[in-house]
């Protein structure tokens, strides 16, 4: 089945792949923001994950070690953010922006020796007869393991936030840190761990880009994926399953744009490349149009530093 030179089954399958880095980074950032911290350094942590994961995979020859390295790289960069904002009370917005710029620079420094190298290939998950189901097999069962990991991550984050005490305490800290402190919860410690988790997830997303999606190292490989991840968290009004939805929507636009180019649509390429970002802006504007509702959905202590002085 083809529509205007595009096979819908293949399109859906490839949008699922395209969305993986955004899902991973966005679900990590969602946890961070639910704890009341606004980390704008997602882009920087992603690209650090991309290069660290790439280096680790090349050095060990194992894609698995590559993903571990990517998560560690992202988490390591997030430690800087956590120390600055949680202990030294630095402004979160400024620190996050600096983190992105720092991550972009550092990754390109580390990556100088890796340009033009091919990473060890990641095998597709062999699901036997499932992969052979027509259409459905193409869409769902011919992916690498990380596609399933990304969906599982959303499910786990959703369940933890909704059903566990850990999730409840995390939400409480993001909602009203003074009250959480008064009840005896360790606001700084919980936020620190949330930031680390967010960094690791962003790093994982970055490693997916350099190890599977592209797969090679180039400077600025993330190309704004971190910013889209940030936008998706707002788009999803801080709800995990909507992050998945949002990421597939954006992944879909990106893939469609590539496919349209390939199919020779008579729209200038630049417009198509702009479209995901344009839609990001539009969605954010629509989301924040109703001020009171946007404010009610956001964690109330988002972006505010906590100091146990009183």
């Amino acid at each position: 089945m083809m529509l205007g030179g595009i096979n819908p089954a293949v399109l859906i399958a490839s949008l699922m792949v395209a969305a993986v880095p955004i899902i991973l980074a966005a679900i990590g950032e969602l946890v961070v923001e639910k704890a009341g911290v606004l980390n704008l350094g997602v882009e920087g942590m992603m690209i650090m994950g991309a290069i660290c994961g790439f280096a680790a995979a090349v050095a060990t020859g194992s894609p698995l070690m590559g993903f571990v390295g990517g998560a560690l790289g992202g988490a390591a960069l997030s430690v800087i953010f956590a120390l600055l904002t949680q202990f030294l009370m630095a402004n979160q917005v400024a620190t996050g922006l600096a983190l992105t710029l720092f991550g972009l620079g550092l990754s390109s420094l580390i990556g100088q020796g890796y340009v033009g190298i091919k990473p060890p290939p990641t095998a597709r998950l062999d699901l036997g007869p499932l992969s052979d189901i027509p259409v459905l097999g193409t869409i769902l069962f011919r992916h690498d393991v990380m596609v399933y990991v990304s969906v599982a991550a959303v499910a786990v984050v959703w369940a933890v936030l909704r059903y566990t005490r850990t999730g409840l305490v995390l939400r409480a800290v993001g909602e009203n840190h003074d009250a959480a402190h008064a009840l005896g919860y360790h606001v700084i410690r919980i936020r620190f761990l949330a930031i680390l988790f967010g960094g690791a997830m962003a790093g994982l997303g970055g490693a997916y880009l350099s190890l599977i999606r592209v797969p090679q190292w180039t400077d600025g490989i993330t190309a704004g994926a971190g910013w889209i991840a940030l936008a998706i968290v707002v788009f999803a009004s801080w709800k995990p399953w909507r992050v998945l939805l949002g990421a597939y929507l954006f992944g879909g636009i990106a893939v469609l744009q590539l496919n349209l180019q390939a199919a020779g649509a008579r729209i200038p390429v630049e417009y198509l490349s702009m479209s995901p970002y344009l839609i990001t802006i539009l969605v954010l504007v629509i989301m924040s149009a109703d001020k009171s509702r946007a404010a009610a959905a956001a964690p109330a202590a988002l972006g505010k530093n906590f100091h146990a002085s009183r």
Partner: peptide, 24 residues
């Protein structure tokens, strides 16, 4: 019982109560 309530507006009553208990 605090003067400025130690409550979380976006959580429901049961969740708020659970947060103030040791082993809810």
């Amino acid at each position: 019982v605090f003067q400025h309530f130690s409550l979380f507006e976006a959580l429901n009553v049961a969740e708020n109560v659970a947060l103030g208990m040791e082993n809810p």
